[in-house]
């Protein structure tokens, strides 16, 4: 009687391993920097990619009728420690947009223009790199460093 339980258990195990691995493979999103994405261009075309960059304020174009948003982002390091070493997110973003030699990426997004999309914001985008070299974002998140930093209080209110 025992073998059929073992076989049943192994079948369930195999099914679960298959479900996990195949779902991971189909739905994995790769975290890349803009440098890495552009370097691996051919490899990554059509795959789900999550990429982040500093927004160039002058490049933002938005058509409210068709809800089409276009802008350009500049390469920033992805690693938190590296960002800290370079003086924090705000400094890193500022430096990125002021440096014309950095790798850039044009982004197309269908949807409403977020409030936080402005110069020197950090855009975190999920989407695919198209054959035309444009990045088609399905999802767009924005971070403005000034609002998320652990704020040390202003010193104007001090008493004594």
């Amino acid at each position: 009687m025992r073998p059929k339980f073992i076989i049943g258990g192994l079948l369930i195990l195999a099914a679960v391993v298959y479900l996990i691995f195949s779902s991971t493979q189909v739905n994995a999103e790769f975290f890349l920097t803009i440098d890495e994405l552009v370097a691996k261009n051919a490899n990554m075309t059509g795959k789900n990619v999550r990429v982040s960059g500093a927004v160039l304020g002058d490049t933002i174009q938005y058509d409210a009728q068709t809800l089409t948003l276009k802008f350009t982002v500049v390469n920033v390091p992805a690693d938190n420690k590296e960002i800290e070493a370079q003086g924090g997110l705000a400094a890193v973003l500022h430096e990125a947009v002021s440096d014309p030699d950095r790798q850039r990426l044009e982004v197309v997004y269908k949807g409403v223009k977020p409030d936080l999309l402005k110069n020197e914001a950090q855009a975190i985008m999920t989407g695919q790199l198209g054959q035309d070299g444009l990045f088609y974002a399905d999802e767009l998140l924005l971070k403005c460093p000034t609002k998320y930093e652990e704020a040390v209080p202003e010193q104007s209110d001090q008493t004594q």
Binding site: S23, T24, N27, A28, E29, F31, T126
Partner: peptide
Amino acid sequence: KVTVGPPY
């Protein structure tokens, strides 16, 4: 570095 989202 990879992540998986809701579809996974």
